[in-house]
Design a protein around this nucleic acid. Structure first.
Length: 321
DNA sequence: ATTCTAACA
DNA sequence: TGTTAGAA
């Protein structure tokens, strides 16, 4: 790699900084108790910071990102003891699925997205709905749908979700969440085409935030397909009744987190009662794919493109997983 | 001042 | 499972 000519006077953020932080800094940045952080390391080996000569922990930027990742899962109701294997597998699939892209290209993509995200943060902390609206439109005109949400909008949204407990942040988060929900809902309704086959989408986990479900519905849909999203909180037991009325081509359940064994058994019972095929989608579905193999439940995986593609295969003929 | 272990709730 | 107490 030739060095990108360094006009970097103030922003060395492009290159991986080997900067190391003491535990109190990590805790200040993540809002987690230092003792808890040490407990995670001791009991689950989730992070392994380097030590100084005197034995003090030194955390890298990657370690801090890992902590944020862990928090993202615990926030969704996943037990800390189970996060380790999840992180392992998601890292493995990421490494396998991500064909090597030129580092320079990837870097400039990251920088662009970071720029948009910075402007979004500014608009949010200003409660500037006009600006937010503007940015939303501009982002939509520069990126494809899946990129808009997975790489630009949702990371910012999730970031706020983690800082939810901080003093002034709740109002900001509500502002962003309400804005995005209304916008996605609007787009979802625009995508409803009369006469097109209908797919029902509902949340599998009660912990699932409404926005995630709506976005999944948006990414799942296409011009030849109408996705109807049931409100989060929809009881699984009553889905048979809803399907009898709506008569969808398929029922898709959005799994935010890997389904528990009890949930899988419940889903298997559900397939017997339904008159339409059943599939699961989302990050949790992707992580549980192995355990769903050989069951009547199809996994659509995660990520916009993959989910949409697999759903169409699923509806057309068979999806061998 | 910071870490570790072990007991506690 | 996260927090506290006491020794190093």
């Amino acid at each position: 790699m030739t060095d990108s000519h360094g006009a970097s006077t103030l922003a060395p953020s492009t290159f991986e900084q080997q900067e190391l932080f003491p535990i109190r800094e990590v805790c200040r940045l993540t809002g987690i108790n230092p003792v808890t952080l040490r407990a995670w390391e001791r009991r689950y080996g989730l992070i392994q910071p380097t030590r100084t000569d005197s034995g003090h922990r030194l955390y890298s930027l990657a370690d801090i990102e890992a902590v944020r990742n862990i928090l993202a899962w615990t926030e969704r109701g996943v037990a800390v003891s189970k996060v380790g294997s999840i992180l392992e597998r998601s890292a493995a699939t990421r490494a396998a699925g991500e064909g090597q892209r030129p580092a320079a290209v990837q870097e400039s993509l990251d920088a662009d997205r970071g720029e948009w995200q910075g402007q979004l943060r500014q608009a949010i902390s200003d409660f500037d709905s006009v600006r937010l609206e503007q940015l939303y439109g501009q982002i939509f005109s520069t990126y494809p749908l899946t990129t808009v949400f997975h790489d630009v909008l949702l990371p910012v949204w999730q970031e706020w979700l983690l800082r939810h407990e901080e003093f002034g942040r709740t109002s900001e988060w509500l502002f962003l969440d309400a804005f995005l929900r209304s916008r996605v809902l609007q787009r979802l309704q625009l995508g409803q085409t009369a006469g097109a086959p209908v797919v029902l989408l509902a949340a599998l986990s009660a912990q699932c935030r409404e926005l995630e479900l709506l976005v999944a519905g948006l990414l799942l849909g296409s011009d030849s397909l109408t996705v109807r999203v049931l409100p989060s909180g929809q009881p699984l037991e009553e889905l048979t009744l809803v399907c009898e009325k709506v008569r969808p081509q398929a029922l898709v359940l959005y799994a935010n987190v890997p389904p528990s064994g009890a949930q899988v058994r419940q889903l298997n019972r559900l397939t017997l009662l339904l008159d339409c095929p059943l599939a699961v989608a989302g990050e949790g579905a992707a992580l549980a794919e192995d355990s769903l193999r050989g069951s009547p439940i199809a996994s659509l995986g995660s990520g916009g493109r993959q989910m949409q593609q697999r759903l169409q295969q699923f509806l057309a003929g068979r999806l061998d997983t």
